[in-house]
């Protein structure tokens, strides 16, 4: 699908609305980080991925955005989506270990996805099988030492099937990333690990499409500058939307704002 097409814009709106409704009906928080990475996942699933590719959602708390992206390409059903966060569901608050074939790994504890992605990429190389590995991380999770272990491994093995995407929304669990454990500039650190690194607007579908599509002899990393709570005025760049569920008034306002975009 062309990201410039009216269909893609319509699809984007439909997915943002569905994400809001799903979280509102389930009375579930974590909306901020879901909204910040939904554009990335939609571009990835609708314009980039091939059947042999693997996606690892290292920021497992954005499971809602992943479920919506998978729903939008027909890999999760309406009925499954209706069960989000309910008893006896496959769609828990963080991605499940089994039951949804399109989800490779259960994640949620941060700092796991990059190593898993490295293993998949190494496996593909050893088997000489095709496929790229996309790993979406948060920015706060680069506090985790395990991620840096994995970066050492990725650069040493030159796992160039890997494309890391950092959802750089600048907010983490209990404050801003700059206040807590400042890693700015993150892109310079990735470059030191011999990664081909670019920084883009994580809500610009054209930029996302262009950079996600690129292949390189080096492992790639894309720093996607995003806004936590993107698209909803009262949520944008506010830490509390890492946690809070929507009230009815807030939900109605959010739906109205997205609908008018």
């Amino acid at each position: 699908m062309n990201v410039h097409s009216p269909q893609f814009k319509e699809l984007r709106k439909k997915c943002f609305l569905r994400l809001l409704t799903m979280h509102y009906q389930s009375k579930v928080g974590h909306l901020g980080g879901n909204l910040s990475c939904l554009d990335i996942l939609l571009v990835l699933y609708h314009t980039i991925l091939k059947p042999e590719d693997v996606v690892v959602l290292s920021k497992g708390h954005s499971a809602g955005a992943l479920y919506i992206a998978l729903w939008s390409v027909g890999l999760i059903t309406d009925e499954q989506l209706e069960q989000f966060h309910k008893d006896n569901t496959l769609l828990s608050g963080h991605p499940p270990a089994s039951g949804i074939p399109a989800i490779a790994f259960a994640t949620g504890s941060l700092g796991h996805g990059v190593g898993l992605a490295a293993g998949v990429a190494l496996g593909k190389r050893l088997k000489k099988s095709p496929g790229r590995v996309f790993c979406l991380t948060s920015d706060g999770e680069w506090n985790e030492g395990s991620n840096w272990e994995s970066l050492i491994f990725i650069q040493h093995q030159v796992l160039n099937q890997i494309c890391l995407i950092v959802d750089l929304n600048g907010l983490q669990g209990f404050g801003s990333t700059n206040e807590i454990a400042n890693l700015h500039p993150l892109d310079e650190k990735f470059k030191v690990f011999n990664m081909e690194t670019v920084t883009i607007d994580g809500h610009d579908a054209q930029e996302l499409n262009r950079e996600l599509d690129k292949l390189s002899e080096k492992p790639r990393s894309i720093i996607a500058r995003t806004r936590k709570g993107s698209g909803v005025s009262f949520m944008e760049n506010r830490m509390e939307w890492h946690y809070l569920p929507l009230t009815e008034d807030q939900y109605n306002q959010a739906i109205q704002e997205i609908s008018l975009q």
Partner: peptide
């Protein structure tokens, strides 16, 4: 983590 990824690739 790498071992789990390799096993996922049926190694």
């Amino acid at each position: 983590g790498v071992a789990a990824g390799l096993a996922k690739e049926a190694l």
